[in-house]
Structures are given as structure tokens and as C-alpha cells.
Write a protein that binds this DNA or RNA. Structure first.
Lengths: 191, 191
DNA sequence: AACGATACGGAACCGTGATTCCGCTTGTCA
DNA sequence: TGACAAGCGGAATCACGGTTCCGTATCGTT
């Protein structure tokens, strides 16, 4: 779940506890400082030594990737929930709103969304395409109901969410990113 | 113009030449590598020593800021040109298109637009507000003609351009940022 | 309770890249 | 054309942060 299911024997009790602390501290510090959050600070915040942190995540990149994967999985859950909304357009709009909402304050994910820092994000593809499958269905349904432009595609979804994420990440003052989302949702309508 | 008008005596001929080379190399390398472009490489690309580069721009931040100011000034020119377009909505839309277009490949500016890297961007405010004045007029006119939402504000403009810049900066594959701009322009219409 | 596998802490190490320093060179001006 | 301020180059310095290493501590099993 966290690192990877592939590894066998369960963690020692204390190690498991530390792992959870590290993840939650990482989330908190990345949210607070973006990618500038330092490994050492994360360890300290979690109340463990750096060595311990590195035992679970061999690099900073690995740590960030783990966090991002979790969020993609959460996205998939949200998308699935929204798929059961009757109105096709509302399903799409609600999904976008909820995903954006859940992204707020998750700098690690935001960065991944935006591909910053030349990380390779190994192992994300899998989670990403699982999500894409669901989103594609939702878009298809919305198009079939003629409530959104016919030329809307799954790639547009990624791009637009990236832009909205940017508004969220960068514009700390100014109007809320929600407004940006509103504009885009309106712009998705036919024509 | 480049560094600051405030400094008196004109540069020595060779220094002026080098300054221009440095600026153009900086633009090129930032475009190519984003903020990862290194001072040393910029100097080398310009055919000067690092010491020379640092003589004009005491820090990397100063260099980037200079480039960004130039672009804001260019934005102002574009905005002014567009102000003379008769149709109010077209004026706004064209301005946004042209500004975005001129931003393509200018990583330094893109970063500024997005506020990355915790730079302070000292001295930009001036140029920024000069631009804002013009844009505000264009928006006001568009609203008066009822061709865009009544609640559109100058802050929305900044946010939206930031989002589009992000699409431009981050989504090297996928659809073009122009599509994102299309969505937003459509979404700016009344209601 | 004893033992080996796991895990822990954190000082030391290292690479990267910005910035400084200073002895030498060149443009400008009288 | 001589003097000197302005400019130049680039090796050396520094700071910062990620990563490694290893002696010690703890867990879980027999």
C-alpha cells in the first residue's frame, strides 16, 4: 500500500509505526514548504533519525512518489464515486471539483501533476492509467449526452487539472483556484 | 533598461556588448533548461567569464528578474496594441492569446508568473502595475459590452494566465496550451 | 533468557552550483 | 600615449541538502 505490496514479511511493529509517522510528516511538510521541505526536517518532524527515513525510502524521490501514488489511488476512489451520479455533466464537474478539493494542500502531488523537478515518478503510470480508465468513461458519457464539447478528450482533462493545480499552488493571494475551475467548467460546454 | 536606468555613466563599449550577449544567452538557456540553467553555462554560452556575468548581475535572482521585467514591458506593449481593437471581447481575447504566445519558451518569465523558487522579484511591481492598468481598461470595456461575465476582475486575469502558463511549462506532451486558453476564453463569456 | 534479524540515530561525506576574490587587461580620456 | 577606472577571467570558496555508514538498540522467535 505505502511503499509497495511486493515486499513480503510485515514490518516490525516499531518500524510500521515509524513509517506511518514519516509519511504523515512528509505530507505535512511538503504541504507547508513544497518540494523545499528537507529530508532531515521530515525525519525530525516524525521524531526519527534520518537513517530511519532512508531505510524506508532510499531517496527523496521515492518518498514523494509514494505520496503521489496514494493520491492517485484516492482520485480513483473519488472518480468511481462520481460515476454513479445520474446527470452526466454533473458527474464530470463534480469529479473535477472533488479531485481538486482533495489536492489542496498536497504539494507533493501538485508537483507530480505538474512534472516539476525532473523526477521520474517511477511506478506511477500504473495508478495513473487506472484512474484514466474511469475518467475516460465519465467523459464519454458526458459527451454522449451532448452536455460538453464533442472534442473533449482525456488529455484535456490532465492539462486542465494541471492548470488548476498551478493556480492552487502558485496563487496564494488573489482569487481562489475554484474560480479558475468555474471558468474551465463553463468553457467545457458545447461549442 | 536592462539592469536599471538609475545607474549613471554609460557602460564601456565592450561591457555593453557583453551585457547584451549575457542577456540573450540567459534567455536561451532558461528557455532550454528552465531555472536549472546554471550561471556558469550562461557565461560560457555568452563567451564571457563568470566574473563578468556577476559584475552585471550580482545574483542569479537579479538576472532572472531583469529578464522578467523586460517581458512585462513587452506585455504592456502588446496590451496597448490590442486596446485599439474595436470589438471589446476580441480585444481581450487577442491580448490573452498574444501574451501567451509571446511567453512560449521564456522559462524565466513563466517561473515569475508562477512565483516559483521563492524569489522576491524585487522591482517587478512597477512594471506589473503598469501592465495591470492597461489590462484593467480592456476588461472593463469587455464587461461594459456584456460580452464577458460581469464578475470578471483583473485578479482573474492573473490567475488564468498563470494556469495557462503552467500548461505551457509543464505539459510538454499532450494537447497544446492553446486548447486550455480556448476553454478559458469560452468560460469567460456571460454566465 | 538468548540470539539473530531488523531497525535506529545521526555524524560524516559528497556533489552541485552559486558567489567571491583578485591579479591581469583594455577602453577612455586628457 | 600614459594613467587609471572599469572590466575581465576563472580558480577557489561556501553553503546547502541529499545520502551513506556503522556502531548500538530493539523486536520477535525459540
Amino acid at each position: 500500500m505505502t511503499t509497495d505490496q511486493r515486499d513480503q514479511r510485515p514490518l516490525r511493529a516499531d518500524a510500521q509505526r515509524n513509517l506511518e509517522r514519516v509519511i504523515s510528516s512528509a505530507r505535512a511538510l511538503f504541504a507547508e514548504r513544497g518540494m523545499r521541505a528537507q529530508m532531515e526536517d521530515i525525519a525530525a518532524h516524525a521524531g526519527v533519525g534520518i537513517g530511519t527515513l532512508y531505510r524506508r525510502f532510499p531517496t527523496k524521490e521515492a518518498l514523494v512518489t509514494a505520496l503521489v501514488r496514494q493520491r492517485f489511488q484516492e482520485f480513483a476512489v473519488i472518480a468511481t464515486e462520481c460515476e454513479s451520479i445520474e446527470d452526466p455533466y454533473l458527474a464530470l464537474a463534480t469529479m473535477m471539483r472533488k479531485q481538486a478539493e482533495s489536492t489542496e494542500g498536497d504539494a507533493a502531488f501538485q508537483l507530480a501533476m505538474m512534472n516539476i523537478d525532473s523526477f521520474s515518478w517511477d511506478g506511477i503510470e500504473e495508478d495513473k492509467s487506472a484512474l484514466n480508465a474511469i475518467v475516460t468513461r465519465i467523459i464519454k458519457r458526458a459527451k454522449a449526452s451532448h452536455q460538453v464539447r464533442e472534442d473533449l478528450g482525456i488529455e484535456d482533462f490532465g492539462m486542465v487539472m494541471c492548470g488548476i493545480t498551478a493556480s492552487m499552488y502558485f496563487m496564494h493571494d488573489g482569487p481562489s483556484w475554484r474560480r479558475h475551475l468555474d471558468f474551465v467548467l463553463a468553457g467545457l460546454r458545447p461549442q
